[in-house]
Amino acid sequence: MGEVLVITSGKGGVGKTTTTANIGTCLAMMGHRVVLVDADIGLRNLDVVMGLENRIVYDLVDVAHGRCRLRQALVRDRRFEGLFLLPAAQTKDKTAVTPEQMRELCQELKKNNDYVLVDCPAGIEQGFRNAIAGADRAIVVTTPEVASVRDADRIIGLLEASELRDISLVINRIRPKMVKKGDMLDVEDVIEHLAIELLGIVPEDELIIISTNKGEPAVLNSHSKAGEAYRNISKRILGEDVPFMNLDESPGFMSRMKRLLGFRTG
């Protein structure tokens, strides 16, 4: 019996889909059976980010309405054996499925897979309610911006109200230089405000844009800082104890010289 995780945020554009794609790919890379469910009906993106857009035949709404079997709708990833995508419908909207149907669907998917990741749409309306219906755990994604943190707070409140207690936080798109100058909320500020467990921190990374456009999740790129962060997050989901990433820029020429000369650089 697997586990259903919903990735949610309230605010749009903070990186829910990117986070879903990367964690899912990484878990599959480590040998687990993973299904990614795109719950953003009408505005599907996960298929594009995964590079599986042109393989879609059936979608989530077809399954919910019994127009096809669940197995027919699952799109197998071209890179990993155990990775599947259940795409959203693009021509319907959020009211096309009900929370009960989603709950059933998640139950069904849990039986044969280790992890079911549900990519939640932005907002707190029916799309959100559908996405969290079958979830065992929630991952709330936020960026270090006041508006995003505020929405995350609202979402956490709603998750708690619907009896979902296992909630952890991913802080996305941190810019270490801005934090250092005091122009951006730092990790401690966000944690103190939201008061939930931190699952991971992901630095801003231009490679993410390239990778989402190409349909190649960043975890597959060993040079990507964000990819490394998502690999750490995936390990933490599996229960490993991984220290948080040091976000300071690589040491400059002078500090390297000092280190070579035997000075302590702290």
């Binding site: 505020r150 929405d151 707070d153 609202r154 956490i156 409140g157 709603l158 708690e160 008061a195």
Partner: peptide
């Protein structure tokens, strides 16, 4: 006995 969050 808990944090009161936005919207509550």
């Amino acid at each position: 006995q808990r944090t009161v969050r936005s919207g509550q």
